[in-house]
Design a protein around this nucleic acid. Sequence first.
RNA 1: CGGGGUGUAGCGCAGUCCGGUUAGCGCACCUGGUUUGGGACCAGGGGGUCGAUGGUUCGAAUCCAUUCACCCCGACCA
Length: 491
Amino acid sequence: MAKELTTRVENYSQWYNDLVIKAELADNSAVRGCMVIRPNGYAIWEKMQAQLDKMFKETGHVNAYFPLFIPKSFFSREASHVEGFAKECAVVTHYRLKNSPDGKGVVVDPEAKLEEEYIVRPTSETIIWDTYRTWIQSYRDLPILVNQWANVVRWEMRTRLFLRTAEFLWQEGHTAHATREEAITETEKILDVYADFAEKWMAIPVLKGLKSPNERFAGAVETYCIEALMQDGKALQAGTSHFLGQNFAKAFDVQFLNKENQLEYVWATSWGVSTRLMGALIMSHSDDHGLVIPPKLAPTQVVIVPIYKTDDQLKQISEKVVEIMAALRSKGITVKYDDRDTFKPGWKFNEHEFKGIPVRIAIGPRDLENGTVEVARRDTLEKSVYQITDLETKIEHLLESIQQNLYQKALAFREENTFKADTWDEFKRILDTTGGFISAHWDGTPETEQKIKDETKATIRVIPLNNKQEEGKCIYTGNPSKQRVIFARAY
RNA sequence: CGGGGUGUAGCGCAGUCCGGUUAGCGCACCUGGUUUGGGACCAGGGGGUCGAUGGUUCGAAUCCAUUCACCCCGACCA
């Protein structure tokens, strides 16, 4: 399998598309805008899921499952919510097919029209809050801390594998609280979980903060987010956590009796990350040689390639490899032995490099004599010879150091590509040259943000938490501003 | 949804303008042999309703119409 990969400088977006397909992470499907996630890609998603799920459970959440379909009328209950999603909803109108009168295939049976149409969930707030009404009577029923792993559908006009697909996989947390403070605390707690996951597991540094009103979730009082910077200088929203206030409780009449025996509306949050994280992972670390996957999320962390001329040599090497694998596994390292006889070592090297396996061990007759192996790390492409003694500890440390290095590299990149702009010319020049995050003053009005977007395609990605307050002048209008916010062009 | 581009073997392409034997090439695939520490070599071989549908024609990958998918740019959106 010859893998020709467009280079990043040549065409970043083509590089990404090529990589996703050639590394067999995902394919386009027969359904417009929907992808097939292939085993290589799904294995990474499963590792993300497992870790996130663990973190949700550790913070007191439980999993549940709500229906794929939502009665259409539910949607109109919360005004800004319907406004945000109406334009991208798939609608189910019938429940039956019948043989076509002309004998060719099947047609929708007009007799089987639904009384009330269903929409395919673009997110589940409405169906969940309709359900919560029946779960909640008293403050003793609170909080409810539920998460669901699900697919959702948003009928996007322009799609890209993982980054924006019509159907995607995600988790959505939906919590209900007795007080505003508790709900806000929950929203922020989840934001920390997301940021932690992004940095420690995906090795992607993220900015934590608030969205501007323009970028806020439809139906939220406040949207918190983590925002990452990709190698082409564009920002990617990697996760959002919403403080929903009492908007959905009011729309779905969810009230509880407090300790003083008074009825109050419930306070809500919702939060999610999706398969879009796969896109973030790919674009953050990978290079012109193919995928680079941080060890903590790599389905296979170590691959062993034997180098031999004769069957006898292979046999001797394999005996050694069995020992090495057992030792590595004792440290919890996932390892594969690539002893396929149908490919040459050089071919395998390239293949595993392309697929992003963090560490490759090569072992041949020379190594058997010397008690060594050749170890290559994917992040730097460096090769070195290791004594086989205590190899599992050395590899364990190597994996940790790769994980660290990827994070440090991404962090350094972000720092090199975060700029302060104090004039409009400077602002535009940065966008047109390097891209990246731009820290600039903004007068705080949605109108100004919109105008900046119209002229430059840049939006406010995040208003950092605990943002430094400083007097300044809006980059666009020159009106007084109290703080800098982060602008960028975004995915 | 608007503008542009591309659909020919698993992948990448030529052939289309100017219709005419059996539709080619590279990689991949299969068989045999030699090989194996960074994508091996030689020989032989298999694989195509030319995106789909309809039309023009004695004859269509090629001309016409419709349609579908994908890519790029815009609009929309998170």
